[in-house]
Computed example of a mutant assay.
Amino acid sequence: MEQQGGAPPAITHTPVTQASKGHSIAINARFVGDTGVQAATVMFRHAGEKEYKALAMDNAGGDNYSATVPGQMASSDIEYYLEASDRYGHGPSRSGDASTPYLVRVNAPAIAAAMTQPPTKPPERDTLIGIGFDAGAPGGGGFTLLVRPLWWLRLNGGIAYNYAGFGFRGGLSLAPCWCAVTPTLNLDAGRFLSGDFNKFASVSDPNARALLSHVNYTFATAQLGLEFGSQRWFNFYLRGGLAYFESSFSGADLTALTQGKIASDPSTRYKAGDGKFTSVAPCLSLGFQVFVY
């Protein structure tokens, strides 16, 4: 008999890549051809075997076909490919083939579930701007504006105050998660302007008092903290770490102090250069943050 004209069906298939051990494996495909579908088959085997087994696919409506590899066969990795012929025997067309089959990794049920579960996304980050208040030692207190360009990064900048005087500061905080108790790494730096250190000491020498009346100093802190509450709206925190301080004194002030304290002969003149004082000390702070937008 003369064979009718036509072509084997075109196959559209999304490969199965993961399965649970002992669970059946559903394989679905779409077969489209002008001369219909006479035979649609899944050819499968355990990985490493030589021979394939044939599993007929059933029509699931329209051009859709489906077959199920029994759960008892899902004891190890499965290799498979699809083939189909039209009603006149043209074909078979294939998706995959015997030499380059699709591979289904068969895992223990818990592992398979973990591998197929979509990655956990961080919660929606819908508050970007806030304000913060804090107090501590030896840095004093502060009021800052908070900006969160990324969910794990928070920038701050504002004013600082301690018993000596006012200053300004800025820094950043890194939060690896948003939890009821969130660990943070906090880096800050700033400068205090013309602080009066006579408040901390009883000095009678006028030159020394003049020197201590307008002390500028720069500071930097590195602290680990715990924040309690909501990262989205309100939390309070406790932080501890190390602080670095650096202060400079003008040569004129040091010259005046030296001349008044050391010179026994008024005709002897001293001239001092600029001086610098540095220190590292433990620091501790606590405060709260409110995000408003």
Rank of each mutant, 00 (worst) to 15 (best):
G5E: 14
A180S: 09
W178S: 15
A47R: 08
H13S: 06
S230E: 02
G229Q: 10
A110L: 14
G91Y: 09
C179Y: 15
Y52Q: 03
W233V: 14
V16E: 05
G225P: 03
A135Q: 06
L257R: 01
R154F: 13
F219A: 00
R87A: 12
F200S: 09
G139T: 11
P176S: 01
V16H: 06
N156Y: 13
M73N: 05
I262K: 10
N198I: 02
P176G: 03
N28R: 02
A256V: 12
Y217Q: 05
D253Q: 07
D274I: 01
P266Q: 12
R148L: 10
A56W: 01
A272W: 04
A7D: 12
L174M: 13
Q3G: 14
T278G: 02
A281E: 14
P122K: 09
L145G: 08
L286Y: 12
G273M: 07
I131Q: 06
V69A: 01
M115I: 11
A160L: 08
D63G: 00
S248Q: 10
I262H: 00
N216I: 09
R87P: 07
M43C: 04
T268I: 11
I131A: 15
T218W: 15
F143Q: 03
L146S: 01
A243F: 07
S85Q: 06
A189C: 09
G287H: 00
A281S: 14
G140L: 10
Y244I: 02
P206R: 09
T14K: 08
V181S: 04
A175L: 15
E83Q: 06
